[in-house]
Nucleic acid binder design. Structure first.
Lengths: 242, 242
DNA sequence: AACTATTTGTTCGTATGTATG
DNA sequence: GCATACATACGAACAAATAGT
């Protein structure tokens, strides 16, 4: 007897989702371009609008497309980002499955290594970006959000520099998670978390191409930061907005 | 004049999704329990069924609930898993943003550390599980899938043992990604990837509580495995199913 | 074994909001 | 201002699955 395979009884919206996702991942619909309109998709897939809409909504909520209304509107493919990863980590945190010390431990293990890797790939362009970021940390800001952005910029640059997209993706997600956790505490305590010039040593070591020094500086920076983060987290426990 | 803010700019399905997700993350609907039926939700949220279904579909595709039909069916909340992360990594790989060497580099940096951590948290229960997993690697199997499962079991146990949920989540996702990549190559080459007893040294060191030895054994194992994986990947490039 | 009730899956018609030209 | 093209939303209906009677 041949072993008969079960008939595929997958949901219609799942099939549509899979095909759309494949087209995006394969690059058949490039970033900036848009998917066919809902009406067109209903015709091509031979399903109802509701099915198509479910699939598109999933694509939107997972960061693959962004929707725009009106004529020349539709589902526009976004450049690949780390939304899905960030959301995954954030959800784990919100579900209280993740503690600050755990996050700190992982960052402390990953980021010094990334700083080491980054220092081996220094280029004039990256050097310029690092120097600008360092300078920007000291410049006056007019909003709290802007300050947070500037204080995380060096981390993002190093993640990009390390030459490993997977490291970059993981680190980006962790930085964003840290960012959101910090956002949950009251602004007046942020001075303790991020003094200006906090990343000077790291950037300097990376620019010099000194991997050991960069890793060491990153470790020192993170140890200090993580300690402060744990402290304010204990104080403001339970204030995070969902 | 006060600057009046726009009433509702967010989509209805997004609001519904946010509220359902919050209820799940807060534990107000526990794992195993089910959300109210679609009809009930339409009444509570005062929106149409299509809107509710879009939200539920997103929850399903992101791994928060699984659907069941029929009476006593519905959207059942799943225990928290790592689906979202795994999918994120897999999508990056499918989009050709991720190479095997990059994956190898990250695993080589993370897993030895996790083995070290695991060795410091050995308990009789974990010891038993490790010994069983080691023994199972040598036992005959009747399916290819079963063999793959047994060869990854030690990694999953160590991830669980390391005592850091974030490490565990990341590693789980990376192992699963590796698994799916391996699945894409032809079975006849799998012997080169995974000899039985491949994890003996690691498990032994962890059981002995020797962190350094465990990390070293893990590094040696991964170096060998990653090299083989890179080789077969080059051979079978482009055969991965989407 | 057959029927019933409940719940998800799917479709269609229609109406409305929004942005472009 | 108007027509157009698109997403958004609603409601009614029917199909399919499945637990209980």
């Amino acid at each position: 007897m041949p072993d008969f395979r079960p008939i595929k009884q997958t949901r219609a919206s799942e099939e549509v989702l899979a095909q759309l996702k494949e087209a995006i991942l394969r690059g058949q619909v490039k970033a900036g371009e848009k998917l066919p309109s809902e009406r067109e998709l209903t015709e091509q897939f031979q399903v109802s609008r509701g099915v198509v809409r479910e699939a598109i909504r999933v694509l939107e909520m997972t960061g693959f497309v962004t929707m725009k209304q009106g004529p020349s509107g539709g589902a526009f493919v976004t450049g690949l980002n780390f939304d899905q990863l960030s959301n995954g980590f954030l959800d784990m945190y919100l579900a209280n499955k993740l503690t600050i010390p755990e996050l700190n431990q992982v960052r402390l293990h990953i980021e010094p290594e990334m700083a080491r890797l980054a220092s081996q790939r220094i280029t004039p362009a990256f050097r310029l970006r690092l120097e600008k970021a360092i300078a920007a940390e000291r410049a006056p800001v007019d909003s709290y959000d802007e300050r947070m952005e500037r204080m995380t910029e060096v981390h993002f640059i190093l993640a990009e520099m390390c030459g490993n997209y997977l490291f970059e993706a993981i680190d980006n997600a962790l930085i964003k998670l840290t960012h959101q956790i910090v956002d949950a505490v009251k602004p007046e305590d942020h001075d303790a978390l991020h003094g200006a010039g906090e990343h000077d040593e790291i950037a300097q070591a990376v620019i010099e191409g000194d991997g050991e020094k960069a890793a060491k500086a990153m470790r020192a920076h993170l140890e200090k930061f993580c300690q402060e983060l744990s402290r304010v987290d204990l104080i403001y426990k339970g204030l995070m907005k969902y």
